[in-house]
Amino acid sequence: MNNAHSNPTMDFIKNLGETLAYVGQQAFDWIIQASWKKLLLVSLLTILTGGLIHLSSLANTAVFGAILVKLFANKDKQTSSQV
């Protein structure tokens, strides 16, 4: 395929996908490494902020997902990232 006719929309979508994957991986790593106290504090602030800006369902989903990740994530990932 000729690069002279590259599609800027597809380039944007690829870059967006890579960025979202990176942010998701960093969030996942933070959730695993954070203490329960810190995670619950951030969850409370997320729910309050979500309620203030009328995105409570999104905030609730993010908090519920973070708690599930913390409960069921592989603990080997935590030990391998600290080495």
Rank of each mutant, 00 (worst) to 15 (best):
P8Y: 00
V23K: 09
I53T: 10
K77I: 14
L45P: 05
G17S: 07
L16M: 07
W36I: 09
A4F: 11
G24D: 15
V63Y: 01
I32R: 05
V23W: 01
A34C: 05
S81T: 07
F72L: 09
T46M: 08
V83L: 12
N7W: 04
P8F: 04
K38L: 14
V23M: 05
A27D: 07
M1R: 08
V42F: 12
A62C: 07
H54T: 15
N3D: 04
T19D: 03
K75E: 15
T61W: 06
N2Q: 06
S81M: 10
I31Y: 00
I47T: 05
W36F: 11
N60E: 07
N7K: 07
D11T: 15
M1T: 09
L48Y: 02
G24T: 10
L20Q: 09
L48M: 10
W30E: 13
S6N: 13
K37G: 09
N2V: 05
G17Y: 01
Q78E: 08
V69C: 10
K70P: 06
G65V: 11
F72R: 04
L39Q: 05
A66K: 00
P8S: 02
I13L: 11
N7Q: 05
A21M: 08
T9D: 09
I53F: 15
T79C: 03
G24P: 02
A4V: 14
A27I: 08
W30S: 11
A4K: 05
F28M: 04
L48A: 08
I47G: 02
D76I: 11
N15K: 08
L20G: 03
L41G: 00
V42N: 03
F12I: 09
L71T: 04
V42G: 00
L55Q: 13
N60I: 12
I32N: 01
S80T: 06
T79I: 04
L20I: 13
V69A: 10
L55I: 13
V69H: 04
F28L: 04
L20C: 05
V42C: 08
V42E: 14
L48P: 01
G24Y: 08
L68Q: 12
A59Q: 02
K37H: 04
T9P: 01
M10P: 07
L45H: 03
G50N: 06
D11E: 12
A34D: 13
N3L: 14
Y22W: 14
F72P: 02
N74A: 03
S43R: 00
A59C: 06
Q78I: 15
K38I: 07
G51Y: 09
M1I: 06
K70Y: 03
V69Q: 04
K70D: 02
L41V: 00
F72M: 05
Q82P: 04
F64H: 02
W36L: 14
Q82G: 08
